[in-house]
Design a binder for these strands. Sequence first.
DNA 1: AGAACGCGCTTGAGTTATCAAGCAGTATGA
DNA 2: TCATACTGCTTGATAACTCAAGCGCGTTCT
Lengths: 131, 131
Amino acid sequence: MASGRRRIRRKRAEFVGQPAELGALLADLRTAKGFTLREVEEATDKAVSNAYLSQLENGRIKKPSPNVLHSLANVYAVPYEALMEKAGYLLPSENGGGQRNRLAAFAIDDLTAEEEEQLLKYLAFLRSRSS
Amino acid sequence: MASGRRRIRRKRAEFVGQPAELGALLADLRTAKGFTLREVEEATDKAVSNAYLSQLENGRIKKPSPNVLHSLANVYAVPYEALMEKAGYLLPSENGGGQRNRLAAFAIDDLTAEEEEQLLKYLAFLRSRSS
DNA sequence: AGAACGCGCTTGAGTTATCAAGCAGTATGA
DNA sequence: TCATACTGCTTGATAACTCAAGCGCGTTCT
């Protein structure tokens, strides 16, 4: 099954970006931090193999063990619960209703001034679009 | 390997009752409430089959999905996290390091989860472009 | 050029979770 | 007595997770 591996090339112009699935989120977190697959494997102390992470990021694995998510949350400095929720696991409090657990507390601590500016700009753009 | 199927007969006499396995705990919870396997299956709205619950209680299944534990926690009226922990999953707080590095340069506190994701995605995009 | 690396990714195999179906045992009622 | 209906339990099949090994591609030496 060859699979036409489609190169995902994001255009800045139309940046539609939906809520994204777990895999995409993990991929974004990793590239944002500038890690390689194997670096993450190391950082998790071999708890998450590079091969596995690849499959995760490409959506081939839908529900990794919470422990895997825990490891990754550590590496990416992002709240564990956020990943759990994205993976489709119920949260302790998430009972019946629909409760809003915030995703990443934007755990990017090493933003450059320039990046920050662009992000803010982009946020402004986003918000201007929301009706 | 023939397997000498060992009947697990719990003794009531010496009740050292310590860490106990998840299975034993679930079994105790159920009998304490006087439910049958099928009643629990019903109570969880078929989320947990009686067959599965049986295997769980007898320790044949070690790490059920968190969602299963959530259902059972509901039925038995015990805290979800307790079951999670018994199942060997790390809890949100169970973290040694506690690195909360979130430098507030980008201190946007009113971000919606969706906005955060899109920003992250955009940042990943930005950084992947810079050579 | 070629060697040597690092990158993401695939694949094969082993383990585990999960369910539908059905089994043996024990009541209870006709 | 037989039938019916429970009880917990087993089993076979399928799907999902997970890893070790290795592949192909692009860089970067030498």
